[in-house]
């Protein structure tokens, strides 16, 4: 069995099983946890509460104006690599083929040159985020192993994917195998660390928005 056979076969299958199990496990756990009863009197309900919750969610997508200038570069870099990752994952023809084989859904892809350019920009943004974490005194103190691990397993597929598309260093089939294995590492790590924020951000922001909106607070 070659490296690519292993990656396309048992490795990706096991990784997907672990990913689905882990994500559902954490979400179900969160859903069924006991919740403290909110004893405050609701100032708004129904459509107004929904509107307030959504508004809060949207407003939290950009820093408050008091911090906007100070965190502008960081915010732009964060958005850059998040959007870049989305473009790479959902815009590259080969990734669409992968998604199609799992879900049956498919759509048109972007030219390889566009994906390569986006990958380079995404990689630059990810490197900036790491450098900032390593050099900012406050961030450095509060960073733990999981922060660096999350960065590593996110960046590795971008680097290996870019190398595979560009046919760099070693033979394509080995690069493709390594790339798929790096995705496996990402999938296996995803539910059990901070990467889970991709799902939990919707839960936590909604909960926060609803909590304050119910009290009439505009946050």
């Amino acid at each position: 069995m070659t490296l690519l056979d292993f990656a396309r076969g048992p490795a990706i299958e096991v990784a997907m099983v672990v990913f689905v199990f882990g994500v559902i496990w954490r979400l179900a756990w969160l859903l069924f946890l006991p919740h403290a009863q909110d004893r405050s009197k609701a100032k708004i309900t129904g459509g107004a509460l929904l509107s307030g919750t959504v508004g809060s969610f949207v407003r939290h997508m950009w820093p408050a104006k008091e911090y906007a200038a100070r965190t502008l570069v960081h915010t732009v870099a964060s958005y850059t690599f998040h959007i870049g990752l989305a473009v790479i994952v959902f815009g590259f023809g080969q990734h669409i083929q992968f998604i199609r084989s799992i879900t049956g859904l498919h759509w048109g892809g972007l030219p390889t040159a566009v994906i390569s350019a986006v990958s380079v920009i995404t990689l630059a943004a990810l490197l900036f985020m790491l450098l900032r974490r390593l050099t900012n005194p406050v961030l450095k103190v509060i960073s733990t192993f999981t922060d660096y691990w999350s960065w590593f397993v996110t960046t590795l597929p971008v680097v290996t994917g870019l190398a595979a598309v560009s046919h760099l260093w070693i033979r394509y089939e080995d690069l493709l195998g390594i790339h798929i294995l790096s995705v496996c590492l990402f999938l296996v790590s995803f539910p059990f660390g901070k990467l889970m924020h991709a799902f939990l951000v919707f839960v936590t922001r909604t909960q926060t928005g609803m909590f304050y909106s119910r009290r009439g607070a505009h946050v």
Binding site: R8, I12, E13, M16, F98
Partner: peptide
């Protein structure tokens, strides 16, 4: 090539 060779929906 990007498609898994052993993908089984029932496992997922």
């Amino acid at each position: 090539l990007p498609q898994p060779t052993h993908h089984h929906g029932r496992d997922i």
